[in-house]
Amino acid sequence: MKSTVTPIRSVVAESAPPALAIQTKDLAVHYGALCAVRGVSLQVPQQQITAIIGPSGCGKTSVLSSLNRLTDLIPGARVSGQILIDGADVLWPAYDPVALRRRVGKVFQKPNPFPLSIARNLDLPLRDQGVRNADERAGRIEAVLRRVGLWDEVAQRLDMPAQQLSGGQQQRLCIARALVLEPDILLMDEPCSALDPIASGVVEGLIEELRGDYTVVVVTHNLQQARRIADHLAVFWTSGDAGCLVEQGPAGAIFDSPKQAITAAYLDGRCC
């Protein structure tokens, strides 16, 4: 697995800085009077896997939620600063969050399939996006289930309630559900942390296969996992009362020679 990863990293390291899929400027997230994270100027390169790491409570998840404006759903949450995707600030009030979320998909920590059948989980978003042709929907559902390696396991029982699948299968279904809308960017919030080690390995492999086709931003607690899958790394920390971004760059470079003392200590496991 490593041998397929290393060349890409070296290409990234040697060539000119890659195009950015997402760029935030001075991003801050508040919940009521509480500041979760501030001053974040994150750069997410296109079609690579960006891992966001850092200790608990440093605002990683808040930043991830703000990227497709799911923070809109949290009462009392306020996001300030800029989030540029394709040069447009998605925090601009007139920006359509529905269109944004169809382009920027999300996979959650805990698998959250709809309490409906497997097929309906994938069919609904397609219908909602206006894909009227039933054959086309069926084709896309099959393709995306094959992509996440679930097709052979569930092809015979697409009408089964999705919640009867195992945890790992549910999470792959949720990834399939996010991919079926053909987004450009996929946000993943600790997608393996609720799974057993084997299922976790399967999902991790799946994430690596998405490299090159999608821009993936994945929050993880697992340093080994970040080391295995990340092309680009963003390290968050808590400074004073709020979280902040301390260091970002190509993953290999940061793992080999972190610029910040905090990062070095964290990566060595010397604190926390």
């Binding site: 759903l73 969050p97 529905v98 709809f114």
Partner: peptide, 27 residues
């Protein structure tokens, strides 16, 4: 109905009425 389900629908950019009719009310 777990809040996760609402978040999943929102993250898919699903329209409110469809979320309601196809997901929330059956649940």
């Amino acid at each position: 109905v777990p809040i996760d389900i609402r978040h999943a629908a929102a993250a898919l950019g699903m329209q409110r009425w469809r979320t309601l009719v196809a997901v929330l009310l059956p649940a």
